[in-house]
Structure formats: structure tokens, C-alpha cells
């Protein structure tokens, strides 16, 4: 159903048989087992799973920070072997530089462009994330939510075609999280990057994703891929929402009725 809305979806990020085994004190620890997944261009996909199931590891492999033990990840048909600023990571912990001002952080990925270009782009993304007036501030002077906006702005400045987001709002309070989700959706609608978004929050996945990839506990496998075929803004009190949510909890092996 969801594919009927997009015209001829192009595969963007393709995982083929990705497995990852870490050595832990000499013992091999299988974290990911044969992951096959295709994410289309401009798609918003959430990776949902219990803590420790290998979501971050999978994202790190896709970002080029780690190599799979077996299998491969291809973006636009080319295998990923190293990070690139065409595909930007938004980290689980704060990845912005505390020693640089908001402006200097955001300009990082476009530092080779002309000063005029830098001004135009930084102004644009700072407005996009709602941080006007804080260009000269240092991260230590910002709230957690604002720091995460800086990180998002830094990522958007390079106009990446893929955004990897590893629990970007995990450290924030629930109100700020909700606001930032709305803003992320707005930005996604405006620019249509492909987004792989890791979370272990069922509601977050439901509010954001077009498709939710549910992982089983370690070694991480794909338990099921759930489509959320609801247009935005989504009615989070409705029957359809409730049904999908129940299904997700079931897949994660918990009931949400306490």
C-alpha cells in the first residue's frame, strides 16, 4: 500500500546478509545475524528493538564506521567502506564539539565552501531547527534539546541524502522529544532525505516511520517489518494506531496493558 503513494521507489540503502560478531574477552559474540533490508529513497524507516540487540551496530556499519563480519551494505549500488558527508550520522550521545560555537559546529561539513555560501546555508539550517540568535553560543550554554538541534542542523547543512539517527532524542524529556519529532517530520517533508532512525520507543517509531523494522533480542534479527500507512498528522488516539501499537508490543514480547 505505502508503495502506491511513492512513484517508482528507488532502493537507496540495501543491506545484504549483514552479520556482525564481536570478540568479547576472546569469546565471539554474535550481535547481528543475516540482516536483509532495503530502504527506498526518501523513506523514513525506524529500527525498533530491545536494548543491546545491535541497532547501533547496524547503523554504524551503514555509516561506514564499522565493517560487517559478513554481508554488505550498499548505498546507490556502491558498497560502503568509509564514512562520507553524503550520509550523515546524528549520534546517540552528543556529537557536536563543545569547544566550538553553534556556528562553527554547523559549518563543519561545509567549511570548504565560500564564505557567502556558508552564511546562506548556516542561516537556513539554523532557522530550520529554530536556533536563530544562538549562533555565537557554546554548547555548554544550551539545553539538551538545543544541543540536539545543533547536531541536526550540522547534519542538514551538508544536504545529505541519507540521515542515520541513533536515538537522537533519547536523552531528552518527553515534551522536547515530541516537539523535535514534529520538527524532524517537517524537515523530512521539506527535504526528503532517506532516514534510518534507531529507537527503542514504540511511540516514537509509530509517530515517525513509514515502516518500522522490529528486531528480536541478541543476536539481532529482523522479526518483522511493520508498515505504518497513516498520513501525517497521525491520530495517536485512533483505532488503527492502537492496533499497530499492539502488534509492535507483541513482536517485542511485552504487553502494554499493565
Amino acid at each position: 500500500m505505502s508503495s502506491s503513494k511513492r512513484k517508482a521507489p528507488q532502493p537507496k540503502v540495501v543491506f545484504e546478509g549483514v552479520s556482525k560478531t564481536f570478540k568479547k574477552k576472546g569469546e565471539p559474540l554474535e550481535v547481528l545475524s543475516a540482516i536483509d533490508l532495503t530502504v527506498d529513497e526518501g523513506e523514513f524507516v525506524c529500527l525498533l528493538g530491545p536494548s543491546g540487540c545491535g541497532k547501533s551496530t547496524l547503523l554504524n556499519i551503514a555509516g561506514g564506521f564499522e565493517r560487517p563480519t559478513r554481508g554488505s551494505v550498499k548505498i546507490d549500488g556502491a558498497e560502503i567502506v568509509a564514512p562520507s558527508s553524503k550520509r550523515v550520522f546524528v549520534f546517540q550521545e552528543y556529537g557536536i564539539f563543545p569547544w566550538a560555537s553553534v556556528w562553527d559546529n554547523v559549518v563543519l561539513g561545509i567549511r570548504h565552501k565560500s564564505k557567502a555560501e556558508q552564511h546562506r546555508i548556516v542561516g537556513e539550517v539554523i532557522e530550520l531547527v529554530g536556533l536563530e540568535g544562538f549562533e555565537r553560543a557554546y554548547p555548554m550554554e544550551l539545553s539538551g534539546g538545543m544541543k540536539q538541534r545543533v547536531e541536526v542542523a550540522r547534519a542538514l547543512a551538508v544536504e545529505p541524502d541519507v540521515l542515520f539517527m541513533d536515538e537522537p532524542f533519547g536523552a531528552l524529556d518527553s515534551l522536547t522529544r515530541l516537539t523535535l519529532r514534529t520538527e524532524l517530520l517537517r524537515i523530512w517533508n521539506e527535504r526528503k532525505p532517506t532516514i534510518l532512525f534507531v529507537t527503542h520507543d514504540v511511540d516514537e517509531a509509530m509517530q515517525l516511520a513509514e515502516r518500522i523494522v522490529v528486531f528480536s533480542a541478541r543476536p539481532g534479527r529482523i522479526a518483522e517489518i511493520v508498515s505504518v500507512d497513516m498520513p501525517h498528522p497521525r491520530d495517536i488516539g485512533g483505532v488503527e494506531y492502537g492496533n499497530i501499537k499492539n502488534r509492535l508490543y507483541e513482536l517485542l514480547g511485552v504487553t502494554h496493558m499493565i
Binding site: P83, S85, F91, Y94, I96, F97
Partner: peptide
Amino acid sequence: VHQRSALNF
């Protein structure tokens, strides 16, 4: 995370 940010950009 900072090393990886640098690498990413």
C-alpha cells in the same frame, strides 16, 4: 563520538 563526527565530515 567526536572522532566519528570528524570522520563523518
